[in-house]
Design a protein around this nucleic acid. Structure first.
Length: 392
DNA sequence: CGTCCACAGGAATGACGGGCGG
DNA sequence: CCGCCCGTCATTCCTGTGGACG
């Protein structure tokens, strides 16, 4: 332990500023997004002479810089407005992290320095409070609704619609909305009345190319690591791995950070390609471990049933097995309908693969097979004391 | 060419633990 | 303390369906 601290103190650490690789870091420069930055700046600039800017919709796949660009421009705008004595409030909410309609509202309220109990109010009441907070602020409020496609596809467009209409009732406060969507077909989900007011302006973010990723990573690396602490080949590999997916910059940056941590832990003098490869494994494993750990009991039981069932099995077979496991630990099994739902969730988490197959005369079912290494999986499941006796 | 299997997956509903304002 | 509303998880009931079998 002393050694670790000593090394950290004596400057053996590879990171000079690890935060530069964290997910909510907004870099000083956003290469390859100049056009979007200027475009959004122009769209929002009416704020500076006291009128309401158009609402705006940003499209693009994950890690294409939408969020970073939006936050970057708003930060600059806020600064410029402050010089003019204009008050700008920025509310950023990631609707998927927020989870529910209600929590989106509560996050918006929080950004306006309004405390809303995390449960207990009706959605209407919560909305009214947000609105009155906006009113009371007597300022320009810009709301960024990140991953807005999640909100709309799960909870409908009521909130979005109401938010776009708030301006009709408020004076002098003004609300403008920046919606950010990962789903390019998002517009189809939206009611036309809502669409026209939300997407007064639109902007598409195309994925970064592998070369662009490389430049971006090099800049981040320069900010985050000491000089010479990262091999250029390692950066190239990070970029290539993330680029082969769809140019996801967030993934690339995460990968680089974890690579750095791996290298640091083995006290390597610099980050090399092998550390990147190890990082890929670690990220995947961590994701899996975390996913399994946070599973509720019955989902774990279902997962266990899938694991112990050889290559692949139908929903019905899994259910039989699951019910048996339940009896062994004296737990009331859930219904098959529910298990079907849990299997779908496990599929979504990537812990299990479920494929719909039709066997004609012999019905239609999902063929379920495990995607996770059985041993690691059991190891994590065995942390749950209620499952202990099932794992021998 | 229709039947009918073995489920998928939507909708409505309810139990539960929690917090609200009065 | 009450009546109300919340989100979450689960149940019940339901309609839908691809294709081998007859």
């Amino acid at each position: 332990m002393d050694d670790i601290f000593k090394r950290a103190l004596s400057g053996q650490s590879l990171f000079s500023n690890r935060d530069a690789l964290s997910s909510d870091y907004i870099p000083v420069r956003l290469p390859f997004r100049e056009n979007q930055i200027i475009g959004i700046g122009e769209i929002l600039s009416p704020i500076l002479h006291g009128s309401r800017p158009s609402n705006l919709l940003l499209y693009g796949k994950t890690g294409s810089g939408k969020t970073a660009v939006a936050r970057y421009v708003l930060r600059r705008l806020k600064g410029a407005a402050a010089e003019q004595g204009i008050d700008v409030n920025i509310c950023y909410v990631n609707t998927r992290f927020a989870g529910t309609e209600y929590r989106v509202l509560s996050n918006l309220a929080e950004a306006l320095n309004l405390k809303i109990p995390f449960t207990g109010l009706s959605a209407g009441e919560a909305f009214a409070r947000v609105e009155s907070a906006v009113d009371a602020s007597k300022s320009n409020v810009v709301m960024i609704l990140d991953e807005i496609d999640f909100l709309v596809s799960n909870y409908g467009d009521d909130i979005v619609y109401e938010l776009t209409r708030v301006n009709e009732r408020l004076n002098p406060s003004r609300v403008s909305i920046i919606g950010i969507s990962n789903d390019l077909r998002f517009k189809e989900l939206l009611d036309p009345r809502c669409l026209s007011s939300l997407s007064e302006e639109e902007m598409v973010f195309s994925p970064y190319t592998a070369n662009e990723l490389k430049t971006i990573l090099a800049e981040r690396a320069a900010a985050a690591f000491y000089r010479g602490a990262v091999d250029e080949a390692a950066i190239g590999l990070c970029a290539a791995l993330a680029g082969s997916e769809h140019g996801d910059a967030r993934r690339a940056v995460d990968l680089l950070r974890v690579s750095g941590e791996v290298a640091e832990r083995e006290t390597a003098p610099r980050v090399e390609e092998k550390h990147v490869r190890a990082a890929v494994q670690r990220i995947e494993r961590d994701r899996m471990v975390e996913a399994i750990r946070s599973l509720p009991l019955h989902a774990k039981l279902v997962l266990l049933s899938v694991l112990t069932n050889g290559v692949s099995a139908s929903t019905g077979e899994i259910y039989q097995r699951y019910a048996k496991q339940c009896r062994r630990i004296a737990t009331e099994p859930l219904t098959q309908r529910r298990i079907s739902g849990l299997l779908a969730e496990l599929d979504l988490l990537g812990l299990v693969s479920a494929n719909l197959v039709s066997q004609g005369r012999y019905g239609r079912t999902k063929k379920i097979s495990s995607l996770t290494p059985i041993d690691t999986c059991k190891e994590i499941l065995s942390e749950d004391s209620t499952l202990g006796s099932l794992l021998t």
